[in-house]
Amino acid sequence: MYATKSLCHQMKVLTGHGCFGRYLCRVLGREPTTECHHCDVGAEDTAEHTRAECPAWSKERAALSAVVGLDLSLSALIRAMVDSEEKWIAVSSFCNSIMLQKEAAEREREQDPNSLLIRRGRRGRRRRAYLANLPP
């Protein structure tokens, strides 16, 4: 299970489809703004911002840079991952550590009654199928 979750976190960081303000606001419509919740810079929260700029992740970024180098662009990380197992593990650890923290923070915001996070239930065919199988 850990390997699957870790791979999922890698994909989120590499694709930008995860707990990033830009994705949650523009694609899912679950956040009122694209602003990063983890830094005071007011920057747009994207996968690139998280990987290379956000001061909240400087410790994790330093550990990653020590193994793969200073270039943390998407193409450089992918090259590093296929270069060696050591670099693959470093990227995986970086992604896993950050995404676990970002997901925990999102869950806290969801539970906060004063949060501006927009809660949406599941829609569509899967939701209807689930509701149809509930006992009366």
Rank of each mutant, 00 (worst) to 15 (best):
E53N: 10
M1F: 11
M99L: 11
H49R: 00
M99C: 09
R127Y: 14
K102C: 05
L131T: 07
R61P: 03
C8K: 15
E48Q: 11
D83F: 12
N96L: 07
V68R: 02
T46H: 03
G69E: 04
C36K: 01
M11N: 13
D83L: 09
G121R: 09
R123E: 14
N96G: 07
H9I: 01
L131W: 07
T34D: 04
C54G: 01
S75T: 13
L24K: 04
Q10H: 12
C54Y: 02
L77W: 03
R107Q: 13
H49P: 02
C54I: 03
C95K: 00
T50R: 00
D40G: 14
R120M: 08
M11Y: 12
S84A: 04
M99Y: 03
H9Y: 11
R119F: 06
R26S: 12
R125K: 13
Y130I: 03
T46K: 01
E31R: 12
S75V: 11
R128G: 06
I78A: 08
A132P: 01
S92P: 04
P136Q: 12
E35V: 15
L116R: 15
A66M: 08
K12W: 06
Y23S: 02
R128H: 09
S75G: 08
C19L: 06
V13E: 04
P55A: 07
L28V: 05
Q10N: 15
L77I: 00
C25I: 02
K12E: 13
G29K: 05
M99N: 09
L77Q: 03
P32C: 05
P113D: 03
R26W: 07
M81L: 07
C39F: 00
N114M: 10
G29A: 04
M1K: 14
D71E: 00
C25H: 15
A105K: 05
